[in-house]
Amino acid sequence: MTYTTRDIQARLAALGYDPGPIDGLDGPKTRAAIAEALKARNVKCIKELFHASGLHRIILHWTAGADGLIELERRHYHLIIDRLGRTHSGALKPEANANCLDGRYAAHTRALNTGSIGVALDAMAGAKQTPFDPGKYPITQVQVQALAETVADLCETYQIPLTLYSVLTHAEVQPMLGVKQRSKWDITWLPGMAGPGDPIEVGNRLRSLVTEAKL
C-alpha cells in the first residue's frame, strides 16, 4: 500500500502530531512530524502508522435517496443506513477501497476514495439547500443514532482515530483535507436544525455522538 503525502499528513494529524497544513506538500514540518510519530510509536516505517488493511478514513454522506435502497447507492457506499435505522451492506466491502487501482471500489468521494470507507444515510431525496427544504425523506433521529453506532464499530475495527481528519462528513472534505468537491453539502443538516449549519460544527455533533456510542 502506497500512501499519498496528503494521506500521511491527515493520519499524523489524526494521531495527534502536527504535520502543518493538510496540503499534500512534503515540507519540513511534515517530515518532522513523521520522525516524531515513528519514534514515539516505536515503529520503523510510515506504513506501520496505518492499519494493516490500508483503510484509515471514514467519510459520512447522505444518498439524496428516498425510502428503499437502489443498486446505484449500494455500488457507491460500503454501508447504508435507512430511515428506520437499519444498516445495509453495500455491493463491496470496505477493503475494496484499500487500493482503487483495479477499478473495483466504491466511488463515494471525488479524488479521495483510496483508504476511505463510505457510510451513508439513505435520505434527503428532493432536499434543497437554499431556501432550505429537507424534502419528503429527511434524515431521522434513529438513523443518526445508528450511524453513530456503526461508525464507532468501524473506528474500533480499523483503528481509525475519531478526529475531524479521519472521521468526517463529505461537506468537511474540502475545508479539512483540501480536496475540491463538487458543491457537496452533505451532511450539514440533522434532525432538529432549522436549516443547514457550518460543516465542521455539524461534523463535531456527529463525532460527539460517535464518542458516546463508543462508551
Rank of each mutant, 00 (worst) to 15 (best):
L162N: 06
K93V: 06
H108T: 03
R41W: 10
L72N: 14
N99M: 10
P138T: 02
N113Y: 11
H56A: 00
I46R: 09
K128P: 08
V119E: 08
G126C: 02
L112P: 14
Q145M: 13
G115F: 02
I139G: 11
A91D: 10
K93P: 15
I81T: 06
A32C: 08
T87P: 13
Q143F: 04
A120L: 11
Q143G: 13
G90W: 03
A66E: 13
V43S: 09
P138R: 04
G135K: 01
L55K: 02
T114P: 07
L112K: 12
C45T: 12
F132C: 04
L92C: 07
T157E: 10
I58F: 09
L84W: 15
W62C: 08
A52Q: 11
G103E: 02
T140N: 01
H76E: 12
R75W: 00
I81F: 07
R57D: 04
G65Y: 01
L72S: 13
A64I: 11
L147W: 02
A152C: 07
E149K: 05
A66G: 10
G126Y: 03
L49K: 04
F50D: 05
I117P: 01
A40T: 11
A35F: 05
A91K: 10
H108G: 00
S89L: 09
R57E: 03
L69K: 05
L55F: 04
R110N: 05
I80S: 06
A96L: 15
D82T: 03
H88N: 09
A33N: 05
E156L: 15
L121D: 06
Y105E: 03
S116E: 07
Q141S: 14
K136G: 09
L121W: 03
D67L: 05
D67W: 06
P138D: 08
R86I: 01
T114D: 04
